[in-house]
């Protein structure tokens, strides 16, 4: 059977440490697969191997082309969006599109159409340094889509975006699944995985430990939610006490308090704090899985008799 992406016994070592260890994976045309794992699990390294940026042992083929022997032909089929667009800051949006268009061997590019696709029409004369993080990512997506490549490879593309930018970008990407493109992406956000992937490959210490359907993965891992409350340092102790009295198991972290909650009790901490006249500066909702990952809490610690999904969060900051 021919696959759009074929990864066979791929190992990549940095010195004695294996960043990717004997990875084998296949993606058919139009399929979408998420690489899931903690930082350092090997997601980005595997993506760099697929792009032919790193040397490795094993075989990787994209559209039948060996990425080492026939790298240009393989990369012609790939649109790549990195975690953060690092490019000549003084180029205008239009010039950047033209440059990559030439590199992809396109005879002419309808720049307006390309930019309209990602909502950047009207910004073509802006220099890249004038773009926000979200706009840069959309430009990277526009560049990735030049020439309508059948494969998209995304490497934690929302990691540098704020919550709003993240949501916008995921919505933008959601339209790509189901259009016949093969999608390989790395993420550690369950909402992205749920929105974009059909299957999930779980990486641990460079090894692919399992490949499961997305629905099963989401059901199995995202069992709860954690509120990340941002409070002034002077009121944090008082807030901790109020929350404990209210039946929660809050934990301090660098910039606020993490409060594990069940879906039906998401508003309760706010009510308790309002009654105690403790102002909440800001908040965000993070998944229990994400909180566990950041806090390095084993999966088995995720259920508690009190109904709060993550009772043993370490005092570690959850990145937004």
């Amino acid at each position: 059977m021919s696959y759009m992406i074929h990864i066979e016994h791929v190992t990549k070592r940095f010195g004695r440490a294996a960043a990717v260890d004997d990875a084998t994976l296949d993606l058919g045309a139009g399929e979408s697969l998420a690489l899931w794992g903690a930082n350092g699990a090997g997601k980005t390294t595997l993506i760099r191997c697929v792009l032919g940026l790193l040397g490795f042992r094993g075989t990787i083929r994209v559209g039948g082309h060996d990425v080492r022997r026939d790298g240009k032909a393989a990369r012609l089929l790939i649109g790549y969006v990195p975690q953060e667009l690092g490019f000549y800051d003084d180029l205008t949006v239009c010039e950047a599109v033209a440059f990559f268009s030439r590199l992809k061997g396109l005879p002419h590019t309808d720049t307006d159409r390309t930019l309209a696709t990602v909502g950047l029409l009207g910004h073509e004369r802006k220099r890249i340094r004038e773009l926000s993080g979200g706009m840069k990512q959309r430009l990277a997506l526009a560049i990735a889509l030049l020439g309508d490549p059948p494969v998209l490879v995304l490497d934690e593309v929302t990691a540098s975006l704020d919550a709003v930018g993240r949501e916008e970008f995921v919505n933008l990407l959601a339209g790509l699944s189901g259009t016949g493109r093969t999608l390989l992406f790395a993420s550690h956000r369950i909402e992205e995985v749920a929105a974009l992937s059909g299957r999930v490959a779980v990486l641990e210490a460079g090894r692919i430990t399992r490949v499961v359907p997305c629905a099963d993965f989401v059901a199995e891992t995202d069992r709860g939610t954690v509120l990340h409350l941002f409070l002034a340092p002077s009121v944090r102790d008082q807030a901790m006490q109020s929350l404990r009295v209210g039946g929660f198991s809050p934990h301090l972290n660098g910039v606020g308090i993490l409060v594990p909650v069940t879906p039906e009790r998401k508003a309760a901490p706010f009510r308790l704090l309002a009654e105690a006249r403790i102002p909440v500066d800001d908040f965000e909702i993070v998944s229990a899985t994400h909180a566990r990952r950041v806090a390095h809490v084993p999966h088995s610690a995720s259920s508690s008799p009190g109904g709060n999904a993550v009772p043993h969060l370490a005092a570690t900051e959850v990145s937004s």
Partner: peptide, 13 residues
């Protein structure tokens, strides 16, 4: 203001 499409709908050529 940026007009943001909700989804990319183009398909691979």
């Amino acid at each position: 203001m940026t007009s943001l499409p909700t989804a990319v709908t183009s398909s691979p050529n």
